[in-house]
Each structure stands twice: as C-alpha cells, then as structure tokens.
C-alpha cells in the first residue's frame, strides 16, 4: 500500500461514523451598500491607516501624479502592458526598465537595483484596504512589485468593491494572486505594528476618479 493509499484509507476509517455534510449558512454580506464615492472614501481611510499614500485624481492627472511620486527615484520598472500614456512625460529613458512581453524578464539583481515600480491593479476591496494584483500585463509578474522598495499602484474607482466577496467574484482563482494591504509590516515585537520590512517599504496608491453613475458594487 502506498503512503497515499494508506492516508486516504486512514481518513475513511476515521470517518466511519459518516458525519453529515452540513449546508453552509451564507447569511454574511454578499454585496456592499456604499456608492462609488463612499467606497473611495473608505479605501482612502484604510490606506492611510496602513500608512500608505493615497491620492484621488482624474484620469488626466495620472501621468503628472506618477511623475511627482517618482521624482526621487533614480530608476523604476514597469510591466510591459502598463498604459504608456501614464509615462509619456518621461524625458530620461535610462530611468525606465520594462519587464515582460517582448522585453523579457529582468533578473532579481536588476530589480534589486531598481528604486521603484509602477503597476496597475485588478480589483480593490475598500473595507479592508486591499489591492489585488492578478499578473495581467499591466501588473506584471509577482517579482517586480515585490523587490523594488517603492510601489506606485494605480486603482480605477470602477474596480473598487466594498467587501471581499464582491472582489473575489471578479477574479480567476487559478492565476497567481497577490493581495496587498499597505506596505510590508510586522507586529512581531511586542505585537506593535511597524511598517516596512522585506516587501516594499513605501506604497503609494493613485485612485482614478471616474464619472458616471456606477452601480452600488
């Protein structure tokens, strides 16, 4: 008998009383009740609580906002699929490194020598201040949003849900997913939270305000 068969047999033996499979009571919230403006306000509050930067701008202001946040960066990396209009202002192409697509993958060492990263995002949960990346071309592979010390992340307000169940329904659970709630942090010394450990120590979130009557979620 293989170990696999042995364990499965042991599980079946342990369950020989045939315990009932219960129905799952899903009385918890499935949909939020805040409008788009309120969701954005809650998100900003949560991000600030995590000591992340949060700026709400119109679409047209995104390039200038990114430019300002990158002012101190000697170099930055962007995923191949990021909207080029957001970086059209760049006059020093040597600062920019591309990752993915026809540019190939940057090495860990190259990324470690890069000051910042700019990505988009898949969906964001306002109530817990959680931005989710799913590896789409405008977000890139997981290493690029991890190794540089400063992450600038763009969130579209139509991609902000109030609660987690709404967000998970919009994701493909087989993709590599990274949920980010603030800069890296630890509570390992006396259970007091300190921001900034191995992951990016600085997180700046640019939220694009979008007009139009959006549904509640």
């Amino acid at each position: 008998m293989s170990t696999r068969e042995h364990i499965l047999a042991a599980v079946r033996t342990a369950l020989k009383d045939a315990p009932a499979v219960p129905d799952i009571p899903r009385a918890y919230r499935q949909e939020g009740d805040l409008n788009a403006q309120e969701r954005t306000d809650v998100l900003v509050d949560r991000l600030e609580d995590y000591k992340a930067g949060a700026t709400v701008v119109d679409e047209a202001e995104v390039p200038a906002t990114i430019k300002g946040l990158l002012a101190g960066a000697g170099s930055y990396v962007i995923p191949a699929g990021l909207d080029p209009a957001w970086l059209a202002w760049e006059t020093e192409p040597s600062r920019v490194t591309y990752d993915g697509g026809r540019h190939g993958a940057r090495s860990v060492t190259e990324l470690d020598a890069t000051d910042a990263v700019v990505t988009s995002s898949a969906v964001t949960v306002a109530e817990s201040g959680t931005i989710i990346l799913d590896g789409s071309p405008d977000q890139g592979r997981r290493a690029i949003s991890l190794i540089p010390d400063h992450h600038i992340c763009v969130v579209r307000s139509r991609d902000i849900t109030q609660i987690l169940p709404e967000a998970l329904r919009r994701l493909d659970g087989t993709r590599p997913l990274t949920m980010i709630s603030g800069p890296s942090a630890t509570s390992d010394i006396e259970l007091e939270r300190v921001e900034g450990v191995h992951g990016p120590r600085r997180l700046d979130v640019i939220i694009i305000r979008q007009s139009g009557n959006l549904p509640a979620s």
Partner: peptide
C-alpha cells in the same frame, strides 16, 4: 486577519496554483 493580528487585512496574501510559466 481580524482574529489573528487584529488587522482588517494582513499586508500580503499570496495565492498560486501549480507552476505559472514565467512567474515564480
């Protein structure tokens, strides 16, 4: 996370499935 560190969400949660070409 709320029961554990008493945060609304922990800073990072990773999900992966098997091997993803070119990532990880």
């Amino acid at each position: 996370p709320r029961s554990s560190t008493g945060e609304r969400m922990n800073p990072y949660t990773s999900l992966w499935t098997g091997v993803t070409e070119g990532d990880g």
